[in-house]
């Protein structure tokens, strides 16, 4: 009895010590190795986006370091979480879709558009199964469509329905988050799904689906933007400039090195190669400072959101824009 106990004691002690050692190893990994003399810049990104490319490629951080900035990347699962981190000053910049800042600005968050990237227009829109009998957007009447509230897909739906001469009451809209929507779509619980790559490309490749309407046709372009907290943007124009410059260099690399890019993304997103290839081939990467044309494009989103009571306040995008040049 006593002996059995002491064996158990040693065993448990070993387990606990092992746990502590592993935890110590984990702690070491959470410690930043960046040097202290550089100015710290924290950038929020989402898997597979422009900054993810820069992060994986590695050039961006090196160039920024030379310019005197130590960059830390923080990954987020969606634009809403990133907006919250921006609002609290936990990150300095965030890369997200074009409509996420509108809802936050309307809610009183002080953020500024500082740059705009390429669009996912050719890989954004409404997908349906090829054998669904839905051949044009007017066939959507009476159908069930999945979208995700608070994301660009909400804007997309409004634009698509308007173009088809329908209203939201002519269709059955269901708000599902990404993973729930993908299961619902695959199982045929919804007829159509408003979303963007890589989910759209994946549906096309694995679910025998087609893109009913893309972003260029619906005019819901789904453009990438970089936003910063208003106060940070005001005081750090040179940081913004450097970010735009080096990010755009990576984007040009991405446009000319599809093979490497695809291999990189297959690995980091753990997606099927066919899906990634489809996604990359229909996309042009870039990163530029804000322009009047971009402001007008985003103002349209703000106005549509206001008309559809998605936001309760008029937002003037120009007021929340910084032109660095």
């Amino acid at each position: 009895m006593k002996k059995k106990n002491s064996v158990r004691k040693i065993f448990i002690l070993g387990l606990v010590v092992l746990g502590v050692l592993v935890a110590f190893f984990g702690w070491k990994q959470t410690q930043d190795s960046t040097s202290k003399s550089l100015k710290k810049v924290i950038i929020g990104y989402q898997a597979g986006d422009e900054f993810d490319i820069s992060k994986t490629r590695g050039e961006f951080v090196k160039k920024m370091k030379k310019a005197g900035y130590s960059v830390t990347f923080k990954e987020f699962q969606n634009g809403a979480a990133m907006m919250q981190a921006l609002a609290n000053g936990n990150i300095d910049y965030g890369r997200m879709g074009d409509s996420a800042p509108i809802t936050s600005i309307a809610a009183g968050t002080k953020v500024t558009y500082v740059a705009a990237g390429g669009t996912k227009a050719l890989g954004s829109g409404v997908v349906v199964k090829k054998d669904s009998g839905i051949n044009s957007i007017s066939d959507l009447k009476g159908k069930t469509i999945a979208y995700t509230k608070g994301t660009t897909s909400q804007y997309m739906i409004i634009k698509v329905l308007k173009k088809a001469g329908l209203t939201t009451s002519d269709v059955n809209l269901v708000n599902l988050d990404q993973s729930a929507a993908s299961v619902a779509y695959a199982k045929g619980k919804v007829d159509a799904w408003a979303n963007w790559d890589p989910a759209i490309a994946q549906a096309e490749v694995t679910e025998n689906s087609k893109l009913l309407i893309n972003g260029n046709q619906s005019k819901a372009y789904n453009r990438s933007v970089i936003v910063a907290t208003t106060s940070f943007a005001k005081n750090n124009k040179s940081v913004t400039k450097a970010i735009i410059k080096y990010s755009n260099q990576d984007m040009q690399w991405a446009n000319t090195h599809h093979k490497k890019l695809i291999a990189m993304m297959v690995k980091s997103l753990k997606l099927n190669k066919k899906v990634v290839t489809k996604m990359v081939n229909r996309r042009t990467y870039s990163m530029h400072a804000m322009t009047k044309a971009r402001v007008a494009e985003f103002q349209e989103i703000a106005d549509v959101f206001y008309e559809n009571k998605i936001i309760s306040k008029k937002v003037s995008v120009a007021k929340y824009t910084q032109y660095v040049k």
Binding site: Q77, L269, L271
Partner: peptide
């Protein structure tokens, strides 16, 4: 770990969820 993390099991799981990586 799902709130904002770039490491940890919770991160691995939500990240996989985004891309429907069922195995992970």
């Amino acid at each position: 770990e799902t709130v904002s993390a770039d490491s940890g099991i919770g991160y691995m799981s939500t990240n996989a969820q985004q891309f429907m990586n069922m195995k992970t």
